[in-house]
Design a protein around this nucleic acid. Structure first.
Lengths: 104, 104
DNA sequence: GCAACACATAAGTATGTGCTTATGTGTCGG
DNA sequence: CCGACACATAAGCACATACTTATGTGTTGC
């Protein structure tokens, strides 16, 4: 299950913080570290998990590796969530149609 | 973090299957078992996790306990996902406004 | 009342996860 | 070239998780 990897990846608070940082723009592994109190290997491992889940993608630039949000991961969550649209507040049932568009 | 509980709960494939079953309508713990090869205690424990995460709510009926999807849990995921709307396909950027409505 | 039922909880165990320290791989500047 | 740098990987360890078997709690029908 690809969903398993995605949800597992997001189940860790540190990884969600990293992901949120990347949502603000592309950053390399070192830049991602400051603010968060985390060792270099730990960050590297977290990024590997996010990458394997399809939530993040990397782009080598010399000796730096730039990470950015992978829209495919976000889209997967959207698709999963769309299956339960019956339980979203009624006001936004129009959402269903929009999500259907997204699947194509 | 409430998000941690939600993502952890959904990271388990069995729990996602249970949740999907409940999305089809309210069911008691025994009814949830058939189809899935899972012991009674294991199901009970999974339901406790889903309940603690706010994804599911229970309703005692005599000696049965009826479970159903809790819309609050679904809404929480929607709210989380809304923060990354910049990375959704452009076509559904209108989604952002709809999600904003949901927060109230 | 009491046996069968529906479910929860306790305790033990195997496996998974996230960290650590140590080391490896590739790149850059002088 | 070579030392400093940016990052990945390996191995070990503490703790969490998902299961098991056994037992507890409350409800129902006879």
């Amino acid at each position: 299950m690809i969903d398993t990897d995605i949800f597992k990846a997001l189940a860790d608070p540190t990884r969600r913080k990293v992901f949120e940082k990347l949502a603000g723009g592309s950053l390399n592994a070192s830049a991602l570290r400051d603010g968060l109190e985390i060792s270099q290997p730990a960050m590297s491992q977290h990024l590997a998990v996010l990458r394997a889940a399809g939530l993040v993608r990397e782009q080598r630039q010399g000796r730096f590796v730039n990470y950015e949000v992978d829209p495919d991961g976000i889209a997967s969550i959207g698709t999963w969530l769309a299956r339960y649209r019956a339980y979203w507040p009624k006001r936004i049932e129009a959402l269903a149609d929009l999500l259907k568009d997204m699947d194509q």
